[in-house]
Structures are given as structure tokens and as C-alpha cells.
Design a protein around this nucleic acid. Structure first.
Lengths: 111, 111
DNA sequence: AGATTACATTAGATATTTCTAATATTAGCA
DNA sequence: TGCTAATATTAGAAATATCTAATGTAATCT
């Protein structure tokens, strides 16, 4: 095993090893982000809150399907929501979520 | 749509929207990281290269299963490998992969 | 050559995810 | 109150992912 080498940027990655709860939670978060439609929704919400109908129009699928994906993102604390009359607004509270998506894109997208 | 606001840290998240290829690639990368065993492997490899048998001992599953997960990580360019006689060493080339995992843990792991 | 070690691959069973299509709920309006 | 709009939920089919257990392959050793 190599020596530890803590950076200021984030909690040490080594802390994850052996803590199965953390491993599980990290995997679940990744899983929540691992669908094209959900990535698309996160990209849309990176510029601010949106109501469901706006998201439906932007992503091009059914309302029911969008609601399902929003529920998955919300269940993993990726997004939050607020009801206003008949409408529901969704947004990203923690902007680090946007950063994770952006970094992933930087590393893995060639074009 | 809001105004663009480029940061120095990473390519603009807005560039993702509308580029379905990028969306797909980002989702595939997330998917590759979305399994507890694969997160564990990435954590192990964050301290340097390891051969398969070492990984098998560290994660506690069968050799065949580890090879399957290594193949998934490799197929998504998350890790690379080098054969040396009978042994195969795996490692993370791009340390940003480690950063993505660490950030995800920071944001979504409570304990 | 034959045996062993290290790893990769495969097939099939099981579990999970996703979509579709329909229905439920709730708020506001006529 | 009855109707419509906005969203959520559900059930079941189809697709995908995962594990197990077995087998394949290639390098090394005796």
C-alpha cells in the first residue's frame, strides 16, 4: 500500500477503502447520474430551476418518463424540488453536482 | 436559457446540452463507476498499479468476477493495463478519475 | 511434454432498470 | 361542482446488468 498524500481539494480517497457504507453511497450516486436523460436534466438544471413541463419539452420524451427520472435524481439528493400551485420546480442545490458532471465530460468526452 | 458563465476549472457544462454524443459518453462513464466493486477497485488503484490477484484478495470476490469488472472499467477507459508474463497490472492513467470518485464521495457520503 | 499459475471469457440464471401506457392526484378555473 | 392542467404513480413488458460456475488461454516451471 502506498503512502497517503492528502490534497486540500477533497477528502482523501483512501478514506473510502474499507468503509463499505461510503462505497455503497458513492456507487448509488454514480448510478443516479448514469443515464443519458438524467445527465441531460442535470445539464439543464445547471443554469437554474425549471418546472417539469419545461424539462419535458427540452428533453423530448413523455411527461411520465421525465417524472420518473426526476424522482430518481431526487431520491439520491442530486436535485431538490418545490411545489408552486400545480407546478413543481426542480433545481440543483449543491453546485458540486454540476462540477462532477462537467469533470466527467472533460475526461471522457472526446468531441 | 441562462447566460453562459465559463470557469477556468473545466469545460463549460452548457456545451453538453444538445450534443447527444457527449451526453451518451458521460452517462457511460458514470455507468462504469456505478458499482460498489468497481468504486472499490478505483480506490485501490488510486494508490498505484496492482495485479489482478492483489485486487481479488483486497475486494473479496472471485477472480472471474474481478476480471469482469476490470474489463468494464477498461472498456470505458477508466483504467489501463499492462501484461508482464502471466501477470496483468492495472492502473489509473488519468488522475482526474480519482478526483471524480473523491468528489462524489465528498458530496454524497454523510459518514 | 505435462502440470501449474494467473488471468480472461463464456453461458445461463437472476436481479435490476427502463420504457410505455394507463391511471391517480391535486390545484385552479368556469 | 365539474373540468382542465400539471405532475406523480403504477403495472407489466422489454432490455440490461450481475453473479456463479465452468472453461479457455497463455506463460512458467519441473
Amino acid at each position: 500500500m502506498a503512502t497517503k498524500n492528502k490534497t486540500a481539494a477533497s477528502t482523501d480517497i483512501f478514506d473510502l477503502i474499507g468503509k463499505s457504507e461510503n462505497i455503497e453511497q458513492a456507487a448509488m450516486a454514480m448510478q443516479a447520474m448514469s443515464h443519458p436523460l438524467r445527465i441531460k436534466i442535470l445539464c439543464l438544471l445547471s443554469s437554474g430551476e425549471m418546472m417539469v413541463q419545461e424539462i419535458v419539452e427540452a428533453v423530448g420524451t413523455t411527461q411520465g418518463n421525465v417524472s420518473q427520472h426526476l424522482a430518481i435524481l431526487k431520491a439520491s439528493a442530486m436535485i431538490v424540488s418545490r411545489a408552486e400551485g400545480k407546478k413543481t420546480y426542480y433545481w440543483i442545490e449543491d453546485k458540486r453536482v454540476v462540477k462532477i458532471v462537467a469533470m466527467t465530460r472533460d475526461v471522457f468526452c472526446s468531441i
